[in-house]
Design a protein around this nucleic acid. Sequence first.
DNA 1: AAAACGGGGGC
DNA 2: GCCCCAGTTTT
Length: 219
Amino acid sequence: MDKVDKIFEILNKEYPKWNAPVIQFMAQNGDDPFKILVSTILSLRTKDEVTAKASERLFKVVKTPQDLLNLSEEEIEKLIYPVGFYRNKAKVLKEVARELIQNYNGKVPDNLEDLLKLKGVGRKTANLVLSAAYKKPAICVDTHVHRIANRVGFVKTKDPHQTEFELMKVIPQKYWQDINKLFVAFGQTICKPIKPKCDECPINDYCEAYKNGSVKSGR
DNA sequence: AAAACGGGGGC
DNA sequence: GCCCCAGTTTT
């Protein structure tokens, strides 16, 4: 069995042990692209749990872009507090809602180009929406994915953008969905930026950084 | 008191 | 490509 197959097999098996509130939350909320987009925007620089709670509160009131637009920024701020940047995010959320209604019939675009045109949406957010909401082949590179891919040895680059393209070459497409789902949870609990728990790591046999002792406290 | 949490956007 | 951004939680 190929090393890549083995790694994903193990991570999939271990996954239930890890907590990734946002992912669980998204799973509970089906694949509604709008909710996934909003949650992802909220998650910026904010802990998973907090994002999940804030999303839950917001979605009790807001189901569509129009709902969002009907609220004042202050009302949105109250709903999403205490996510970091709540003031800015409230503004972004309203702007995104406005763009969705004006340019996309109130629906979240299902292609990278249009998603990237939205305010506050970059490659990470866009790819997550494509993957989670539309089940399209896309790899969402956040700091966890970037760090883990480099440690394990899938890629060797400092540029997250480059990581995205390298991973697409190295990892078979059938696993792209797994990357987005598994790596965040794995990165938060085991393969942490500093003080990673390599002794408890289920895939340390396959990790280049572990083998050559270069898993420093660093990103 | 200081560091950690992370992605987008401007230049 | 590098640097800035901002609020809450954790150490």
